[in-house]
């Protein structure tokens, strides 16, 4: 009994600690643009949202998609095209990108969930590569140049996004809403069923859940949120190019999630920050980024599978948070 209450107290303490850290992080993000180059922080936030969306699928449903760049980059194209060719306002264009990515997610997901495990990954990779070839040839993407000179426009016709600070706080707001949505999904009854699929798919089936439908819904949600991140990035950087739909981009988001910690809420954010920061540093040093990325991949898989945040949880927070199910 006493041990149980001790556990409960420690769990509550670690929860308080977590909440405190989240508040601190949000305050830091509000203050960040006054100290750091805003574009750089915005890039981090876009990729962090992308990685969290990806983690919704890998970390909480156990599905490794190797084609998430298609949704990220596809949405960027839709959004950029809507702004440039049709003169849409940014909020509508971002919405279009998100919906478009969800539609693509429905098609790719429908095909990919027909196979499991490693085949699932290969199918998503192949479908994303098909979309890449489509983007290379389709006239609306403007080929190698990409869609450039996308106007940031006025948010809801009022807020001028060409002002850096306005843009920043809009990105921060979308990022926080996106993360909150993922947090809600993960901790809902729906999220619990996703986790049960991750842990033991056959048991989930035997409990009467139509696993395929849950997987597909999770896939579409993940694709839509990845699309939100991609569309946002197109508005921030004012262009959409082939880079965002390549398989290297799909690999990058996997790396962010793996490095930060698969299946943790904060991990992908940390991972995205580190990878974006590292790439920025390497860009000026002349050391090839792919070698660094590849090495981090290999090291993570060999000795660091829990990732940074996962490792912190396991070392310092797990006795409190995870103990309830273990020994109690």
């Amino acid at each position: 009994m006493s041990e149980a209450t001790l556990h409960a107290e420690r769990a509550a303490a670690s929860l308080r600690l977590e909440r405190g850290l989240v508040v601190l992080a949000i305050l830091a993000l509000i203050a960040a643009p006054f100290f750091v180059y805003p574009i750089f922080v915005m890039k981090m936030l876009c990729f962090a949202l992308f990685a969290c969306a990806f983690n919704l699928l890998l970390g909480y449903t156990g599905l490794l998609s190797f084609g998430h760049a298609a949704f990220f980059g596809g949405a960027a194209y839709f959004c950029a095209y809507a702004v440039k060719a049709w003169g849409w306002p940014p909020e509508a264009a971002i919405l279009l990108g998100t919906v478009g990515a969800a539609g693509m997610g429905l098609v790719v997901g429908f095909l990919a969930i027909r196979r499991q495990g490693i085949y699932f990954s290969m199918i998503t990779l192949a479908m994303a590569q098909m979309f890449y070839f489509f983007c290379v040839q389709a006239p609306f993407t403007e080929g190698e140049d990409g869609i450039q000179g996308v106007a940031r426009g006025h948010l809801f016709g009022v807020v001028d996004l060409s002002i850096a600070m306005n843009m920043y706080f809009f990105v921060l707001a979308v990022f926080l809403i996106g993360i909150f949505a993922i947090w809600r999904i993960v901790n809902s009854p729906f999220g619990m069923i996703l986790r049960s699929i991750r842990e033991n798919e056959n048991r989930a089936i035997s409990l009467g859940y139509s696993v395929d439908r849950y997987k597909l819904v999770a896939f579409v949600m993940s694709a839509a949120l990845a699309g939100l991140a991609g569309a946002l990035k197109a508005i921030v950087f004012q262009f959409a190019t082939l880079t965002d739909v390549t398989w290297q981009m799909s690999g990058e988001v996997i790396l962010m999630t793996l490095l930060g910690g698969i299946g943790t809420m904060v991990g992908p954010v940390v991972g995205a920050g580190l990878v974006v920061g590292l790439e920025n540093t390497l860009a000026t040093s002349g050391f090839p980024v792919t070698i660094a990325t590849g090495l981090i991949f290999m090291i993570c898989v060999l000795i660091f599978r829990r990732g940074i945040v996962g490792e912190i949880y396991a070392r310092w927070l797990a006795p409190a948070a995870g103990g309830e199910g273990g020994k109690g």
Binding site: S121, P288, I291, T293, G294, I296, M298, L302
Partner: peptide
């Protein structure tokens, strides 16, 4: 040989990293 006992997805991820390194070296 260290990855046989864990989820096969890690094998895919490791060899993906290896591919990036090999390719990166020759590109460099």
């Amino acid at each position: 040989s260290r990855l046989y006992r864990i989820d096969p997805l890690y094998g895919l991820l490791f060899t993906f990293g290896l591919a990036l390194v090999i390719e990166g070296v020759f590109r460099f």
